[in-house]
Design a protein around this nucleic acid. Structure first.
Lengths: 338, 338
DNA sequence: CTGAAAGCGCTTACAG
DNA sequence: CTGAAAGCGCTTACAG
């Protein structure tokens, strides 16, 4: 039943009057219907429908001291949010998981200092019950510290560097995933395996490089390492570097798919065949990975599991439980590029 | 001053006691500081700092009957949000404009029926004071109708088809912009100008095609029109169609840049030189347009102006003024592709 | 199972 | 300029 235009919005007392019960009884059916007799329940439900009553969230939030919403905090600029498909996948997963509990997801960006200040204000003001923290670059540590200091429940995606003990998180097993991929390249007979790294103030970027270092062991050669920042362009740039420095490179492990895609382009333009001359592999398994030519061999991050677990852990923390850390295994996806 | 962990959050009475004034006086300084004597004001400010007081938004919202936030409603799936850079630009602009009024922007997606239902619930429950409506496909008319029926202030980006009279909006001048571009192609000596259309349940898609139709006049030929949906892939598909159907096509006007980029790729693969053999032009001027090879000639939509005006109009409607419609001129950006 | 009452933390006329 | 008081619309012990 649509609430008629103009008329004052019905409140709980209107429903109570209509149903011939007290305000408390109406509230009880609103909150689960426990300890309410069947006839009362029926009367109230009918009255709600008849009046078009909808609970006033502000009043409820004030009374319960909860916000009934959760924030998705992205410590990135708007541009990167839209450039990296992982964020979209993560956000949709979180929104879906939260929807089952009827909790809206509020997206907050903190890419600039100014945004960061506003985000902190917003999050610590009580607007939300908790926050899902995504992509915590070192440069944004202030937000994390503030959130923790304010006692706002939060769960990070990936290891929140420097705050591992104070904030729960769920992360893919970057190290094992990368190692598995590198061994696969080995088995393919590759001799000169280079890597394009992710940002080194990010747990994923660090761990994937550690795996590379461990895998190379004695053979580790600084010349085979080119830095990237997870953007496609940085992958292309790194690949050009690598090609100039190590002409006989025969495999490249990019720390994410976007950079692998950039590398693919550069190799194509340079006339190197993939995978014949150079094997290329990424990390993430974004949808563009399978669509690429050649289709990209990569390590799949189980983003749906990740977002699901993040929501679960966050609701736990909000409910008063201690935070926890979860590591989720990745999966090697072999396609054409390696 | 950081609110100490654990300790109960200070409330307005704590500040009042600390400052030696009444609760009303504290509230007055919180709300602008009018009608407060200088000494009282100083005392209150000091007390606020000392106690670490922050206003409880739920209590304030209940008392004022306002939410103090605005929604950015995207009637698209998560995927498209991240695929189309225009949304990012629009959202950042809106967030910035709103930030000046200290109003947070809440992103709401309504791509699926389920999301649409939840979005409507959320928006009409009083969680936000108004909504910025973006990309109103015909398939999502229900949300618009519900928002209007519930009397929630809203401003659309682009003409809200079927609701032009009931909802304010700000739109780029699609018709003039497209016409200007087509005339430019004319002047370049192009004889067989094709078009790749946008979705026809969208005001931009419709108006840009109308301009094309008007421009062609007598020469209008159905074979020169290929449908797209604003995605890059659809642009590529349309270009292939066009090439097969009209081998002598010498110019293509794509209804947005993403599709123009797709067309560029196909032409390149087909061995057609751009702009020598075929001129290509888009609409929007996304950042990838200038980065493309060749750089894309296009019609710039002034997204910063658009988001700014949307916010202005929305705040007006929230303040009780009548809604208004604004059309903003576009700008022809000539680069290499045409 | 139900109602009367207190309380959530603010704002805002109103009287002074 | 300031304080006392009512009110915003809910929830939740508490007594019955």
């Amino acid at each position: 039943m649509m609430q008629p235009q103009g008329r004052p919005r019905p409140k709980i007392d209107d429903v109570a009057r209509e149903a011939g019960v007290s305000r408390g009884t109406v509230s009880r059916v609103l909150n689960g219907g426990h300890w309410v007799s069947p006839p009362a329940l029926a009367a109230v439900n009918a009255a709600i429908k008849k009046t078009g009553y909808r609970v006033n969230p502000h009043a409820r939030n004030l009374a319960t001291n909860k916000a009934n919403s959760v924030a998705f905090l992205l410590t990135e600029t708007h541009d990167r949010l839209f450039a990296d498909p992982n964020f979209a996948v993560l956000m949709r997963g979180a929104a879906d998981a939260l929807a089952e509990h009827d909790i809206p997801l509020v997206l907050i960006m903190a890419g600039t200092d100014d945004e960061q200040r506003r985000a902190t204000d917003f999050l610590t003001a009580g607007h939300v019950d908790g926050v899902l923290l995504v992509s915590s670059h070192g440069s944004r540590k202030g937000v994390i510290a503030d959130i923790i200091a304010a006692g706002v429940p939060a769960i990070a995606c990936g290891v929140p560097l420097g705050f591992e003990k104070k904030m729960g998180y769920v992360a893919a097993d970057d190290y094992q995933g990368a190692l598995e991929l590198l061994e696969f390249l080995d088995n393919g007979g590759r001799k000169r395996i280079a890597t394009i790294t992710g940002p080194q103030d990010t747990s994923g970027g660090i761990r994937r490089l550690e795996a590379y270092r461990a895998h190379q062991g004695e053979a580790f050669d600084e010349a085979l390492v080119a830095p990237g920042d997870y953007s496609r362009e940085s992958g292309a740039r790194a690949m050009r570097e690598l090609l100039a420095r190590v002409p006989d490179v025969d495999a490249v492990f990019a720390a994410n798919d976007l950079m692998a895609l950039g590398a693919l382009e550069v190799l194509h333009d340079a006339g190197r065949r993939v995978p014949e001359d150079v094997a290329v592999a990424g990390f993430d398994d974004i949808s563009a990975a399978s669509a690429a030519t050649p289709a990209l061999t990569t390590v799949r991050q189980p983003f749906d599991r990740i977002s699901e677990e993040m929501v679960r852990l966050l609701l736990d923390v909000i409910a008063g439980k201690n935070h926890a850390a979860i590591t989720i295994p990745t999966e090697l996806v072999v396609r054409e590029s390696a």
